[in-house]
């Protein structure tokens, strides 16, 4: 149980990228009426940014 929770917290930045940053980017695009590039939907574009960014934060230990 403890190991599972520690793993969950370890991967939390990645989950945060998918769970929060991706939809936030999508909704910001829609709010400012900006089209996502390459014909992507706002959510797909959000996931394309949020998931790798979260993965980067998980592996490197920093968001920037």
């Amino acid at each position: 149980m403890t190991t599972a929770i520690k793993q969950l917290f370890y991967w939390m930045p990645f989950l945060f990228g998918i769970g929060f940053i991706a939809p936030l980017i999508a909704q910001m695009l829609e709010y400012w009426q900006v089209s996502a590039p390459w014909g992507l939907s706002p959510v797909m574009f959000g996931l394309l940014i949020g998931a790798p960014w979260g993965l980067y934060a998980t592996l490197r230990g920093r968001w920037l």
Partner: peptide, 17 residues
Amino acid sequence: MAFFFAMAWSGYAMEVA
């Protein structure tokens, strides 16, 4: 975090932010 994710995917990410 569960609240953040649920709200964000329900269309309220800006509110959470």
